[in-house]
Amino acid sequence: MDSVLFTNIRPHDLLVVDGRIADPSTRPENTVIVDGGGALALPAPVDAHIHPDKTTWGHTWLSRTPASTLRELIEGEVKARAGMTASVAERAGALMDSAVARGTRAWRAHVDVAPEYGLANVHGVREAAEARRHLLDVQIVAFPQLGLLTRPGTAELMERSLGEGADVIGGLDPLGIDGDLHGHLDVLFGLAERTGAPLDIHLHDGGEQGLAQVREIARRATGTRVTISHAFCLAEARELDDLLAESNVALTTCALGADPVLPVGPLTAAGVLLAAGSDGVRDPWTPFGDGDMIARAHLLAYRTDARTDEELAACYAVAAHGGAALLGLERVDLKAGDPADFVLVPAASLAEAVVDRPAPLLVVRGGAVIAREGRLLERSPR
C-alpha cells in the first residue's frame, strides 16, 4: 500500500493512500511525509480547449502575418504549418510537459483533420499523449479546421480518426465556414449517432446568426453529449441559458484577447456546464498563451471583472471542476475518496491564487509529486 501524508498545508493535511485522498485517522504505518511548506492545496485544473498540433512551443519563433478574418487566419495557418520542421509529437509533447509542470491534470485537445493532413496530426498528438499517460489525461477532438462540407473526404477521415486516436467529433461554424447549418449538423450528429462519440463544435459566428445555430444545436442535442466552444454570440445574450441547461449543452470559453468572454455567474447559476481552455498557444494564430490553467483562471476573472473572493473562486471552479465534468473525470474536492490530483501553491487563499497566478510549489498526480516549482520532475521518454 502506497501512503503519503502531505502536511503543513492549507486548508488541512492530506493523506493519500493508493492514489486517493483518505481519512487521516486511517494513516498506515510507513507513511511517507511530505512537508508542504504552508502552501495552499487546490484541485488540479483542466484545459478543456487547446490546439496542440498547431503550437510552436519549445521550437523556433514564428513571426505571424496580419489577418483580419477567420478565413484569413485559417489560410495563413496552412502556409505556416508547411514550414514547421519539428514534428507534431515533438511540439505537442513539449507543450504537454510545460502544462503538467504548471499543474494541468487533463486536456481536451482539438486536432486538425483534413484531406491535406490526413490523420497525421491525430497520430502525432496521440503519440505524445501516450508517452505521458502517467502525467496527463488527453482527450482528442477530430477537428475540421479547414471546413467539413467544403472539404470532401473530411467527414470520412473524422470517422476513421475515432479508431486511430481521437475520442470526440468536432465541428466549426456551420454557417460562417460551411454555409449550411443543417447539412453541417446532419453530418456531425449522424457521426455521433453511429459512433457514440461526443461532439464539440467551435462557434465563432456572432449575433442572430450565431444564436440561430445555438438553438438548432440545442434542439438536436437530445441523447448526444454536446459542447459549444467559444460561443461568442452568448456573451451578452441570456435568453438561451435555460435552453442550454435543459438540453445539457456544455460551453467552453478561453478569455482571449478582444474576443467576447462567456459570463461565469449567469451561466453557472442557470445550470449550464462551463469549462475553460487555452485555445491556441504560440501558434500561427497568436504569439500568446502558455498552457497554464491557473493563469487562464486569472484571465477569465480579469475579463469578467471578478472582484469578490466568491467571484474569483468561481473562475477557478470553471477551470477545475467545469473542465473535469466536461471530460468525464472525477471531481476533486480534496475530500476522502477523491483522486489525489492537486497542486500546492504559495497563496493565502484561492482568491489570492487566482489573482497572483503563482507557479505551483508541487504538482501531485495520484499522490505522486510529478513537478516542483514549475519544473517537471519525471520527463516522459522521447
Results as ranks from 00 to 15, higher is better:
239 E>P: 05
120 A>T: 15
233 C>E: 00
190 G>T: 09
49 H>I: 14
175 L>K: 11
207 G>F: 08
308 T>D: 10
294 I>K: 05
364 V>Y: 01
116 E>W: 11
138 V>P: 04
85 T>M: 12
120 A>Y: 02
271 G>P: 02
178 D>T: 10
256 L>F: 11
210 G>I: 06
304 T>C: 05
171 G>N: 13
293 M>G: 04
311 E>Y: 08
77 E>P: 03
49 H>V: 13
248 N>R: 15
224 T>Y: 08
370 I>L: 10
174 P>D: 01
374 G>L: 06
87 S>N: 07
5 L>A: 11
343 V>G: 07
100 V>E: 10
90 E>T: 07
188 L>E: 11
231 A>W: 02
69 T>L: 06
218 A>M: 14
106 A>K: 00
263 P>R: 12
294 I>D: 02
277 G>K: 03
119 L>T: 13
229 S>Y: 02
320 A>R: 04
345 V>I: 06
57 W>F: 15
331 R>D: 15
88 V>Y: 00
347 A>L: 01
293 M>N: 04
134 H>T: 11
185 L>A: 02
267 L>F: 01
305 D>N: 14
237 A>W: 05
79 K>Q: 02
70 L>G: 01
5 L>V: 10
63 S>L: 11
316 Y>S: 07
267 L>S: 03
330 E>S: 14
158 M>T: 06
18 D>W: 05
123 H>R: 07
376 L>C: 12
211 L>M: 09
74 I>S: 03
138 V>M: 07
257 G>S: 14
119 L>F: 13
348 A>N: 04
124 G>Y: 07
215 R>L: 13
25 S>Q: 15
116 E>N: 11
126 R>M: 08
188 L>P: 12
28 P>E: 13
298 H>Q: 12
106 A>N: 03
334 L>V: 15
76 G>V: 04
138 V>F: 02
334 L>I: 14
258 A>E: 14
109 A>D: 06
317 A>G: 04
119 L>M: 14
132 R>P: 03
348 A>Y: 00
101 A>G: 13
325 A>I: 08
42 L>G: 00
309 D>C: 04
163 G>L: 01
268 T>D: 00
251 L>F: 01
176 G>A: 08
23 D>M: 10
56 T>M: 10
63 S>A: 13
205 D>Y: 07
256 L>S: 07
196 G>F: 09
300 L>D: 05
346 P>R: 15
203 L>Q: 10
59 H>N: 12
378 E>W: 14
60 T>G: 09
123 H>L: 04
346 P>K: 14
307 R>M: 15
150 T>S: 15
346 P>T: 12
275 A>C: 09
236 E>Q: 13
123 H>F: 04
353 A>N: 03
272 V>F: 00
156 E>Y: 03
314 A>I: 02
223 G>Q: 00
74 I>Q: 07
300 L>C: 01
344 L>E: 05
331 R>L: 15
146 L>P: 06
33 I>R: 14
141 V>R: 05
230 H>C: 11
266 P>R: 00
79 K>L: 07
14 L>I: 15
128 A>I: 05
128 A>E: 06
200 D>I: 09
175 L>F: 13
152 P>I: 06
95 L>V: 05
48 A>R: 10
